[in-house]
Write a protein that binds this DNA or RNA. Structure first.
Lengths: 213, 213
DNA sequence: ACACTCACATACCTTCGGTATGTATGTTTC
DNA sequence: GAAACATACATACCGAAGGTATGTGAGTGT
């Protein structure tokens, strides 16, 4: 049986003799989020028990409920982190090609797609999040990838890289399409070949959109 | 407290003095599916208890577990029915425009999109199904709308209505995009206007795809 | 150094999915 | 047509899991 401090000290954090309360909190939250993300990603939201999360994190449910309002909130925090990581990758790819606004969107889409191929990311963001959080909660949860897509498209339109149009419909089609594509690619007999096909087709789609009136 | 026969007789079925076993079974399954679909649609999969389903159906859990292996199977049956209803609407719209293979796909997409605006359909097929059933189970569950989309696109390619390309990537983009669009449209400040925008943009997308090389 | 808050641990409650068993009602067989 | 059997449930119960109430010891402000 592990004590409350074992987890915090075990991760390489310097074992302070008298850790401040803020440090304890942060470490505990970190442990909980790490444990929760691992279990949510492998077993899924419903099949993950809070007891298992607590055991893995080396704390009890008292600690969990002190920092999170409940299972949904815990998952929400994990989901938010996942979105932030995805957003960082997308933004990085986008910025690297920002000179060409439409090409930048393409690179952002490629980054989102490739990142979403990770089964763990997929389980959290694509399978469990809608049912567990609901669409509105997902939308209003800090930075999300859909918003990035929308901004990228809006910029491409403003810059005249693609014909003028409202940004929202295309945002939904792109974002939803890429999400579904990620799920299909991973389950394909030859995922690598499927990914190549998807990217090739996405390229043609982008060209067609740029050429359209 | 209702007796076991109340539900079956209450729906207008002619109250036979000695109903055959097949009739009893069918009536019970029907009652269970109707009750389950109502609760799953309004409260969601996780928040729906089997006790509530049984109470609404006028039977007990013994009956439920006699006809279904468990909660997941019950939801699966409800989901399958929903997909069949959607597929029927899509096929109807598609056939009506089948003379033009690409236009037929457009009409099928429009039908899928409009049918998916129903919050109850959305809750079952778009929010809860992925998490509760998993992607593979959804795919292998009889007739599904994604498969219809794929066939329509493949036909349009064979007929030369759009430039030659693999059908799968475009299928994912279209199907996923429409699903996401349906969710966005319903939550828009002005859903009707949002739907019009989406359909207009979809039209442009189809034209661009047909024109592309 | 004293009161006070924070960060948990412990114990318990309730709900709910699932199962084991009992029973009445068709259904088949001789 | 009556025994033998299968079907279609109802009833009672179990265990897991989300959530809560309460206790406690370690930091923290005054």
């Amino acid at each position: 049986m592990a004590t409350a401090h074992t987890a915090a000290e075990g991760v390489g954090r310097q074992p302070r003799v008298r850790p401040t309360q803020r440090e304890r909190s942060d470490a505990t939250v970190e442990d909980l989020l790490t444990a929760a993300r691992a279990l949510f990603a492998s077993a899924g939201y419903a099949a993950t028990s809070l007891d298992a999360v607590c055991e893995r994190a080396g704390v009890t449910k008292g600690a969990l409920y002190h920092h999170f309002a409940g299972k949904k909130q815990l998952f929400s925090a994990v989901y938010t982190r996942e979105q932030e990581r995805l957003a960082a990758r997308i933004t990085g790819a986008y910025r690297a090609a920002a000179a060409d606004p439409w090409q930048a969107v393409f690179e952002g889409c490629r980054a989102y797609l490739e990142a979403s191929l990770d089964p763990e990311v997929q389980r959290i963001t694509l399978f469990d999040a809608p049912g567990a959080l609901g669409w509105e909660a997902m939308r209003d949860l800090g930075v999300n990838c859909r918003e990035l897509t929308q901004k990228g498209i809006a910029r491409a339109i403003r810059k005249g890289a693609i014909p003028d149009r409202p940004a929202d419909p295309l945002t939904s089609m792109l974002y939803g399409g890429l999400s579904e594509s990620a799920m299909a690619v991973v389950r394909a007999p030859d995922p690598q070949a499927a990914l190549d096909e998807v990217l090739t087709d996405l390229r043609r789609l982008f060209d067609a959109l740029a050429a359209g009136s």
